[in-house]
Design a protein around this nucleic acid. Structure first.
Lengths: 195, 195, 195, 195
DNA sequence: GCCTAAGCGAGACGGTACGTCTCGTCTTATC
DNA sequence: GATAAGACGAGACGTACCGTCTCGCTTAGGC
């Protein structure tokens, strides 16, 4: 077995600095959004040197995405109760609620920036959707296997069909979906996916 | 009838400058996207003074959105042939093709930035979705009236259900929808909306 | 006799505009000095078009010099009482008082700018020193003729010797000459010029 | 003894940048004078960032004065040979020669601007006249002590009397003093100051 | 208990964009 | 035909942020 050589000579990398930068980055995104975000300001607030920040993250965008990722992923817990239809319905309603919040608006800003940022797609996928999309994919597949959902549509597309409308609303510059609107959309799509 | 008072004192605003700025802005967005956009560079390329640009548009974002709006709205013509189901199906497939293009990626960047920009929602609504959303809304309403579509869902939500998944894919950092995937999604949603 | 044909077709040149621009220019120089002077602001205050201003004066500097020239030349009246020594002594003391004032500070700003401005020397000579220097020159020559002053020094240099120290003080960043200091200097130089 | 605390936290200020900016500023003043001077152009030529320039100097004027100060102070060396009369005479002739040069014209521009600039008087006094005026003052006082000069006039006024006419000529928009004119003026004033 | 190496904060660096201002010119409708 | 109003291209203003760099200080393992 390969021995993991964790300690080297010299002062070790400071976990405290990493955490402090993430915390200040999240705080700054909360206050000013991505448009008002700057690495200088994160360094100022966290008392972490800019060079140290650039050692941990390749860009301010990468830092912001990771800092915000915690909020995005914690906002809506993944679930798999055995009833795929009801689990998916719950997820849609909960995610709609998230995107109605301040946090959701900042998340959408970052989603847009991710399209052009260096490694933006990977960063967004990893910190915003990665674990969730995988879990929801399993949920859909389980549902199809159990006969709760029809299997004619690619499970990836099922996810897009369920959650896409929520984000679309926001980037259209329209009011976010209410709970009842989100519920109506979820019922529509789930009905179409009926076994 | 309201008399159109077109002339005022002083030298009139130069239409040529306005058009030149829009052209250079579109060119710049094409080359570098919104992340690489700057008012200085637009001024440089178009040989239009910065002060003139700021007289026409309150911010670089407003200029970029208007410049790009022409591409977005011209990419997919609105239609109303009398057959709502087939018209909506066509729109979905065409729009998916647009968002697969370079132009679509830049459009998504701007959509994200619009969330936080000053008057971002209004600008996006006016230049990106305004006319199209209104036309598509009429299409849906006509379809319901003619009995081609079921009327249980708010027409606005119908639009979100149809077009939302396309944009969602992109901001998830995943490959854009292929024609056949877009078609499958359109069929799913239209089936659920069956009379 | 040749009839002077002063009127031509079209609207005559407005003397009122010229005077208004001069007035606003002087007011602006009073408030902000040459450093804070701008043709735009003169046009704004005087409600005279910028093009009209540039028709009357080739540059903002020319306008400023003419506007301020009235203050400079009116501040110290020329005199020739027959007693050259006492007349020159009076002039020195009066001019020192002028350069102690706000008006004097602005005048020195313009003197400095005149060194490099287009036609600066001519403008300064004409509006600031022209008539005065000619008159004082006559005073000196009369004094020499009458035997009140020695004639070994070029009259032009006499003027420089008498009035130079006053301005020099100001551009050295030192407090302006008091009346008694100016008097002491005048007496020194006049003594040296004794017949 | 006071301990010299030379090192501080953070990257030290770059002496090379400071020197490069001064050099480019002097070059620019030489070419275009104060009227054609701009911080942007200095930054461009010296490849020093504008922020760095504004860290070293509070304004473009402060930079220009310091950059030109070296030329002004090196143009005429101070001296004190023991013979005050001959030393002062030499100084007047040499200074007249300096003000006849291109460098002298730029210096006069800066003198005028210093009247209104923020801290203009202090900057001019420090970089243009400071050391020289102090040295010349000592020269005059030594001369009075040794009986070479009469002591009835304030030594500060002696300096104004000797050097004022030189600058006055220039700001009058007249040709600068020739060597022989300067010499005549110096003789006149020194005669008046005779013991 | 020193020595050496690496990470640390602080902050200066060159570069570039911001949005505003002024310059001197121009193009209208009005007088 | 001269005017005021005001838009125009050009480019400087002083500030902010980018990502890199250079300091002195700190913290570890190796000797």
């Amino acid at each position: 077995m390969v021995e993991q050589r964790t300690s080297r000579r010299g002062r070790p990398v400071s976990e405290a600095s990493r955490v402090a930068a993430l915390g200040s980055a999240a705080e700054l995104l909360d206050e000013r959004g991505w448009a008002g975000f700057s690495v200088d300001e994160v360094a100022r607030r966290s008392r972490v040197g800019k060079a140290t920040i650039y050692k941990h993250w390749p860009s301010g965008f990468a830092l912001a995405v990771q800092a915000w990722g915690e909020r995005v992923t914690q906002a809506v817990p993944t679930l798999n109760s055995g009833d795929a239809r009801s689990d998916l319905y719950d997820q849609v309603v909960r995610l709609a609620a998230f995107y109605r919040s301040r946090s959701g608006a900042v998340a959408v800003e970052l989603l847009g920036a991710g399209v052009s940022a260096e490694s933006g797609a990977e960063l967004i996928a990893e910190h915003f959707f990665g674990a969730r999309r995988t879990a929801t994919l399993a949920l859909v597949r389980d549902g199809i296997e159990r006969g709760q959902l029809g299997g004619e549509l690619d499970p990836q597309l099922v996810i897009d069909a369920l959650f896409g409308p929520i984000v679309f609303r926001l980037v259209n510059g329209m009011p976010a979906l209410t709970d009842s609107e989100a519920a109506a959309l979820a019922r529509l799509t789930l009905r179409a996916l009926g076994a």
